[in-house]
């Protein structure tokens, strides 16, 4: 039973990290209707920048904001230089552009950071907790706390602020949003700033949790998180979070704990196929 609870905690932690990456994709899909594959490269960039700043300064409190700022810049650069000019073409064109950016950035990480796995030796300044024999590591506590804070902040921005209202209006109908005085290109850029900064946090958390940062660490999340926004319901933010948490727990418990002989990363795609067959609008989608 102890093992079960530890696995459950790990599963929720993985799910929380998935949701941090997936939310960026869902936000971008909402305002631009683009499948932002390169988002996973932004996440990797966050891990690298975080690691470099951490190595130089020894401070996570500096590393995290630096990585968030760098990723916000990278994300908006991708939007301005690649997506916006390609938006007038059919949707597969920006998608190909996105894949190209993703692969190019992976190569840049390889050139700059080296082709090997770097370790991220950050330690948390507080101890783990043991509850009735279940060990909760400081990394797990941090993932929970940081994810909860980021999710809460995103929820606040999207539902309560005028920027969030502008984002929702732009998602629904860009033309009418414009006629209501909403500067859609500014709104879209701000969406990339938000999504990319959150991806940076995810990159650092993963780097520390697995003590690994490497050029292709975004490869699996790139496609898995696309599957997740489909499972959640394209563009639905609560759906993206729900799908991510379910997947994190599902992967850990079914494949890790119950030993079902499937590759771990296949579960997201099985779920996506099931959703497409039985509930094409996704878990919480409304179209």
């Amino acid at each position: 039973m102890q093992l079960f609870f530890e696995q459950l905690l790990n599963g929720v932690a993985m799910g929380a990290i998935y949701s941090l990456i997936t939310l960026g994709l869902a936000l971008v899909y909402g305002v631009m209707r683009i499948l932002h594959v390169a988002h996973a490269a932004v996440y990797t960039a966050g891990a690298y920048v975080g690691l470099y700043v951490f190595t130089m300064t020894g401070s996570l409190l500096l590393a995290v904001p630096a990585a968030m700022a760098a990723c916000a810049l990278l994300g908006t650069a991708i939007e301005r230089l690649i997506y916006t000019p390609l938006l007038k073409y059919p949707p597969f064109v920006p998608l190909i552009g996105s894949i190209a950016v993703f692969l190019a950035l992976e190569e840049i990480f390889r050139l700059v950071g080296g082709p090997y796995i770097l370790s991220f030796p950050a330690e948390f300044p507080f101890p783990g907790i043991t509850v009735r024999g279940v060990v909760i590591s400081p990394a797990i506590i941090s993932i929970y706390a940081v994810s909860a804070a980021v999710l809460l902040l995103l929820w606040f921005v999207v539902t309560k602020t005028e920027l969030g209202l502008a984002m929702r209006a732009t998602s629904q109908d860009r033309e009418i949003a414009g006629a209501m005085g909403i500067n859609s290109s500014f709104t879209i850029s701000m969406t990339f700033v938000l999504g990319s900064a959150v991806a940076a946090v995810a990159g650092i958390l993963v780097g520390i949790y697995f003590n690994q940062v490497y050029p292709t660490m975004g490869a699996v999340p790139a496609y898995k998180c696309l599957a997740l926004i489909v499972v959640g319901g394209l563009g639905s933010l609560p759906g993206a979070v729900l799908a991510s948490l379910l997947l994190g727990v599902g992967e850990t418990l079914l494949i890790g704990y119950a030993n079902i002989p499937l590759p771990r990363d296949s579960l997201a795609f099985i779920a996506m196929i099931a959703v497409l067959l039985w509930r094409p609008q996704g878990l919480l989608g409304n179209r």
Partner: peptide
């Protein structure tokens, strides 16, 4: 939505409720 007209363009002004 239309009442936010004056504030949508700014980073800070658009973060109000």
């Amino acid at each position: 939505v239309a009442l936010g007209l004056k504030r949508y363009g700014g980073v800070l002004s658009s973060l109000g409720p």
